[in-house]
Simulated assay, not measured.
Amino acid sequence: MSTPFPASVYAARLDRARALTADAGLDAIVVGPGPDLTYLAGVEGNTIERLTALVIPAAGDPTVVVPRMELAKVRDTAVGALGLAVADWVDGQDPYALVTAAMPEAPARLGVSDALPALHVIPLADRLGLRPELATPVLREGRMIKDAAEIAELRRAGEAIDAVHRRVPGLLRAGRTEREVGADIAAAIVEEGHRTVEFVIVASGPHGADPHHEVSDRVIHDGDIVVVDIGGAVPAGYNSDSTRTYAVGEPDPEVARRIAVLVRAQQAAVDAVRPGVTAEQVDAAARDVLAAEGLAEAFVHRTGHGIGVTTHEEPYIAPGNDLPLREGMAFSIEPGIYFPGAWGSRIEDIVVVTADGCVNLNTTPHALTPAGG
Rank of each mutant, 00 (worst) to 15 (best):
P35Q: 15
P137H: 05
H301E: 15
A7S: 04
G80K: 06
V219P: 13
G294Y: 04
M1C: 12
I145G: 05
A260Y: 13
P35F: 10
A160Q: 05
A101M: 11
V228P: 04
Q281D: 14
D229F: 12
D23F: 07
Y338C: 08
D27L: 04
E150Y: 04
Q281N: 09
A72Q: 15
L82R: 06
R50N: 15
A355I: 07
L361R: 07
Q266V: 04
I225W: 10
E297T: 13
V273R: 12
A284W: 07
V66G: 08
E133Q: 14
G42M: 08
E150S: 15
D15I: 11
I307V: 10
G304A: 00
L128I: 00
I337E: 01
A296R: 15
T38N: 15
G170S: 08
E191H: 02
T100L: 14
A135Y: 00
E44C: 04
I201R: 11
V248A: 01
L130E: 06
A11N: 11
Q281T: 13
T245I: 01
Y39D: 12
S240A: 14
L40K: 11
E153Y: 08
R257G: 05
M103Q: 06
H207A: 15
A209S: 05
P33N: 12
S113G: 14
H312M: 14
G336A: 09
L172R: 12
A81D: 15
A298N: 13
R18W: 12
I220F: 00
D147E: 05
H207P: 08
E159S: 10
Y96P: 11
L325E: 10
E178S: 09
L71N: 10
I29C: 12
A160D: 02
V270N: 03
P315L: 01
R155V: 05
R195D: 14
G208D: 02
P235N: 08
Q281Y: 09
S8M: 05
E159D: 12
D184A: 15
H213P: 01
R13P: 11
A291P: 07
V202K: 09
E105W: 05
V353E: 11
L110D: 00
T310M: 11
Y338A: 08
E192Q: 13
H213D: 00
G276Q: 05
V248R: 02
I185Q: 03
I230A: 03
G344W: 08
K146E: 08
P137I: 05
E254P: 07
L128K: 01
N321S: 07
A59Y: 03
F331G: 06
K146L: 06
V138N: 06
H213Y: 01
V90H: 07
A342M: 15
K146D: 06
A125I: 01
R302G: 12
D252F: 14
P62Q: 00
A41H: 05
A371W: 01
S242L: 13
V9L: 07
G223M: 02
E105C: 05
V277H: 13
V164S: 00
V353S: 04
G42N: 04
L71E: 12
V226N: 06
T310N: 09
G170T: 07
G25S: 02
V112N: 03
I337F: 02
P6A: 02
L40M: 10
Y316A: 14
D288V: 15
V190W: 00
R264N: 13
Y316H: 13
D114Y: 14
V64W: 04
L71Q: 15
R166Y: 04
P324Y: 02
E191L: 03
V79P: 03
G372R: 13
